[in-house]
Simulated scan of single mutants.
Amino acid sequence: MFRKLVAIEPVSLIPSAEKALHTFAKEVVMYDDIPEGDDEVARRIGDADAVLVSYTSRINKEALEHCPNVKYIGMCCSLYNPESANVDIRYANSRGITVTGIRDYGDEGVVEYVTSELVRCLHGFGQEPWDGMAREITGLKVGVVGLGKSGGMIADAMKFFRAEVAYFSRSEKNEAKAKGYRFLPLGELLAQSEAVFCCLNRNTVLIHEAEFKQFGNKKILFNTGLSPAWDEPAFLKWLEGDNLCFCDTVGALGGEYLVGHRNVRCMNVSTGRTRQAFDRLSEKVLANMTEYVKNNG
């Protein structure tokens, strides 16, 4: 059991899960706003031995250096690798601090979002049809960049609607091959796909000027990550063509100034943050804490 548990920002747990936090610590402190900077993060953590954080704040080395009692950090958001995490995991581990995160809790909402927007675009619901005439997903050549959990689910959704699916990832996947998805080099995938879905970890940039040239004109680009999957200058040049870019959040797009661009469709809302996603998130956060307490007394 922890002595003091602090959530340094809103962590999107359902009420029953927030109540359950009190079974893990003698004292629980929950902040309802986002801290500004390392000094405020350190102040909020204070003498706590356990910390919860969502995706909107960072816990850097500079903050942790002022918090000697921390033993556990629970990320109430996706953790894929140390490079994309909003916690300095390597420094934390060097201090003996355990950092846990979760995965695969908001993917269903993201798949529904991209499918909905693609259908609206092709059919012309509330807008001009992409081709000038209503069109189905059937036969559409789509490419998925990053075939992790959400990328795989998007590929499966596109296959259900009878699109031709290709993908690029670090290596070919046997499961994808069995489903008939073609593994292609990134440039080739961009060149042959009419609609591309980027499903990459935070701060992973794969599309540069050369790739945008291969992608070409009259294309549809979705980014479902938490940050842009492209170099900004090259993206801005591509955006001036007869193209469309869909992002659910400003973070995925790259900046507020792009929201009003004629070829940008930004929902300005995290489409993975649904009622069901909060249920899954809460279950996984509590499971991580349960496992830690079980193993550490």
Rank of each mutant, 00 (worst) to 15 (best):
S54W: 15
M30L: 15
L21G: 04
I14K: 05
V87P: 01
D38C: 03
N69P: 12
D104H: 12
I59R: 00
D49K: 01
Y31W: 05
V29C: 04
P68V: 12
D47W: 03
P35Y: 05
A20F: 04
V70D: 07
C77G: 02
N93V: 08
Y31F: 08
R103D: 05
N81C: 14
V111R: 04
T23L: 14
V28A: 07
T98Y: 00
P82C: 13
Y55F: 15
R58Q: 07
C77V: 02
L21V: 10
I97W: 06
N86L: 07
L64D: 11
L79R: 03
V99C: 01
P68K: 12
N69C: 13
K61D: 04
C67W: 12
A42F: 03
P82G: 11
Y55M: 15
D88F: 00
N60G: 09
V87F: 06
S12H: 11
L79E: 10
P82R: 04
N60R: 07
V70K: 04
G46C: 11
N81I: 12
T23S: 15
V29I: 10
F24V: 11
P82L: 12
I102G: 08
S12I: 03
A85W: 08
R95L: 01
N60A: 12
S84C: 10
V87N: 06
S78H: 11
R58V: 09
A20T: 03
N60M: 08
I59W: 09
I45K: 12
S54I: 14
A25R: 01
R95E: 05
H66F: 13
S94G: 02
A92Y: 07
V99H: 06
D107R: 02
A42H: 00
N69K: 13
E27N: 14
R58T: 08
K71R: 15
K19V: 08
E83L: 09
I14D: 02
C76A: 11
A63N: 12
K26L: 04
S94R: 06
D39Y: 13
T100W: 05
G96V: 00
A63E: 10
I97V: 10
D104V: 09
A25D: 01
R90S: 12
E65P: 01
Y105W: 10
D32M: 13
I102Y: 02
R103K: 11
L13D: 00
G109D: 02
I97K: 03
R44C: 06
S84G: 12
F24D: 04
D38T: 00
G37V: 05
E83R: 09
V51Y: 14
V110N: 05
I59Q: 08
V70Q: 07
